[in-house]
Design a protein around this nucleic acid. Structure first.
Lengths: 215, 215
DNA sequence: CTTCACCTTGACCATACGGTCAGGAAACGA
DNA sequence: TCGTTTCCTGACCGTATGGTCAAGGTGAAG
């Protein structure tokens, strides 16, 4: 927004930096607490403790619990939308869908909390992001469906139902975040290693791309 | 279970019937409320209202909110385990996995609330069913992995990683319950029709079975 | 009818929660 | 140094929640 894209390294005690840093810490803590306890189970006190701030300070930066929650949900949605660009400018499904799976799987590993908050939000009927679903997500979905249909028409993949393919992509990739605890338990209690994550990505890509007849 | 499989039509006011009927009504209401509000967001008052009973009566049948919640989670887990029998006694992946997808998709349609409660429970770290994950689910998973591996060895399907295939099956089928609201929104706000559900099942089966080289 | 086990429920309690506020501290610009 | 804006926070408040309890209702057995 502002024109001075300064590095702002020295003197981090500046007013703007204080606000930015505190909001960041609060959002990070909130994402984790909302993911682990749900909206109803999360408490402002818990978020405050995790952020290392007094509870009253949270209400200085975010008026209400809902405001804070809304910001967290919007955050993961934007991250996903960014990743969705993998889809575009791809010559065919192998590159496009392959890159999309890679991106979504990476996000599942780096932003598991955000994914859970989103899942929770949708499961509860999307009380705060219903408008996003009806506008941004619907438009995005229709756009990708058109791309997939084009690939089908060009004979680059089997004539599957593009909508259900998208659902499968979302379900499968986000499962590694949302059900990460179950996966970890079935992995002997240990988180997936780098190697296992590569294996997971490769497996998903292999099964999906073969499933749509792209390989 | 009981020997007298009576119809119990007339005179439903029997003691046993009262207990059974009230517990059923409470569990049904609880499943819905827990699914829609999460454990933290659900209130005993709301469950009581939905069940048509005074709140104090809930505590007569279920000592605590946790007890009630635990019963709801166990319920959906048992339903899934029953469906898992589709896997066995199948000559190959087309029949076994095909039937499993059918069964899981049917459950996603008939028991969406239970599926959401399970998802929520796992996302929050499985505080009340961790032991199930470590025993029953782990054993079941290992058993199916062996079955899938046998099919691979017999050349009935591609050599995919059985574990990730199972994750894909769970993710994809449960997505239609857990993210049902999102799917409905993307469907113009209307729930999937019978025809659309058949299309969904067919699409999932087609992509998965092709993805593992079974068709 | 009496008994007794089981069921029902309004009223109540302690706690925890989201949110407020006033007063003070710290960070600027002039 | 002074004035002003921004930031900080302990103490507080109204409310809603999970859970309790005592008193009363109900139906079947004897």
């Amino acid at each position: 927004m502002s024109g001075d894209a300064q590095i702002s390294r020295l003197k981090p005690g500046r007013r703007t930096d204080i606000r930015r840093e505190n909001e960041r810490a609060i959002l990070e803590a909130a994402e984790k607490v909302f993911a682990e306890a749900g909206f109803g189970g999360a408490t402002m006190q818990l978020i405050a403790d995790m952020a290392g701030l007094p509870k009253a300070n949270l209400h200085y930066y975010f008026a209400t619990k809902e405001d804070l929650y809304r910001r967290v949900v919007q955050q993961i949605f934007e991250i996903w939308l960014d990743a969705a660009s993998s889809f575009d400018n791809a010559p065919g499904p192998v590159e496009g869908i392959g890159a999309y799976i890679d991106a979504k799987m990476d996000i599942s590993r780096t932003h598991p909390h955000g994914s859970k908050v989103w899942a929770s939000e949708v499961m509860h009927g999307a009380p705060v992001i219903q408008d996003y679903l009806e506008t941004t997500l619907r438009d995005w979905t229709n756009g990708r469906i058109a791309v997939i249909q084009r690939w089908i028409d060009e004979g680059k993949m089997q004539p599957v139902n593009p909508r259900h393919l998208l659902y499968m992509l979302w379900a499968t990739t986000q499962h590694y975040a949302d059900f990460g605890h179950q996966i970890q338990t079935l992995n002997g209690g240990a988180p997936l290693t780098d190697r296992q994550w590569r294996e997971a990505k490769a497996s998903v890509k292999d099964m999906v791309l073969r499933g749509i007849g792209a390989i």
